[in-house]
Every structure is written in C-alpha cells, then in structure tokens.
Computed example of a mutant assay.
Amino acid sequence: MKIKLSGHHVEISDSVREHVEQKLSKLASHFPSLIAIDAIIAKEHGEFEVELVTNYEGSRLAASGKDQVMYPAIAKAAKKLDAALMHRKGQLKDDLHKKPVATAPEIAAEVIQGMDLT
C-alpha cells in the first residue's frame, strides 16, 4: 500500500513517517484491495489535525483526527478510517446476499375450509 504523507506547518521526520506507516499497516492487511492513502498532517492554532483520504471499491473515504499532540491525532484518524472502511465493506457484502421475500401468510379460515373435517 502506498502512503503519500505531507505536512502543513509540520516537518515530517522519519519517526513520524514510521509511526503513520505502523498505524496504517493494519488497514493494509484487513483491506488488501486498498491501494493508496493520502495523509495530511497540519498544525493550526496549536492543534494537530490529521486527515486521511483514500478510494476504496469505488467510494472516496476520508477521516480526520484532532489532538494537542501529533501521535494521538494520527491514531484517532486511523481508527476512524478503519471504521469507515469496515462500514463500506459491510455495504458491499450486504449487496451480495439475497434479500428475503415477504410472502402473504395463509389465513386460518381458508386453511380450515380446505380441510376435510368429516
């Protein structure tokens, strides 16, 4: 899986890149058709905001996390993206299953009339 990491008012060091790759490695194993994730780390007004964007099975999914410290913000965004991917995967699997067809219940009076009670 390809991770494009960029920073706004934040320097992306090797340790930050390693931490992002570690957090997103679980997503790669759960969703093998996931090709790329764009990660943007920004610092505004003393708060870190991490935004993760990806395309999965024809849908664009995005998740963001905010915190005073960068690493918990990355963890929050990764957790939200994981939940969004699970939801989308559930929608796709749900479309594969045959929906039950509602049938009209038999009316007891009609059943009794059809019975031979002699």
Rank of each mutant, 00 (worst) to 15 (best):
L24W: 00
L24S: 02
S25G: 04
S25H: 04
K26R: 11
L27I: 03
A28N: 01
S29Y: 07
H30E: 11
F31E: 00
S33H: 13
S33Y: 12
I40T: 14
I40G: 05
I41A: 04
A42P: 00
H45W: 15
G46F: 09
G46N: 08
G46Q: 08
G46T: 07
F48R: 03
F48K: 06
E49C: 11
E49T: 15
E49G: 03
E51L: 09
E51Y: 04
L52H: 03
L52W: 04
V53M: 08
V53I: 14
V53N: 07
N55F: 10
N55V: 10
Y56K: 00
Y56D: 03
Y56C: 00
Y56G: 01
S59M: 10
S59C: 07
R60N: 09
R60V: 13
R60A: 11
L61D: 02
A62M: 10
A63Y: 03
S64H: 15
S64R: 14
G65I: 05
D67K: 05
D67G: 06
A73H: 06
A73W: 05
I74T: 02
A75H: 12
A75C: 07
A75Q: 14
K76M: 13
K79G: 12
K79W: 11
K80D: 14
K80M: 11
M86Q: 10
H87L: 08
H87D: 08
K89S: 06
K89L: 07
G90D: 04
Q91S: 11
L92R: 06
L92V: 08
K93Y: 12
K93D: 12
K93W: 10
D94A: 15
D94S: 14
D94Q: 15
D95E: 15
L96F: 08
K98H: 15
K99Y: 11
P100W: 05
P100V: 05
P100A: 08
V101Y: 05
T103G: 05
T103D: 09
A104V: 12
A104I: 14
P105F: 07
I107T: 09
A108H: 06
A109T: 10
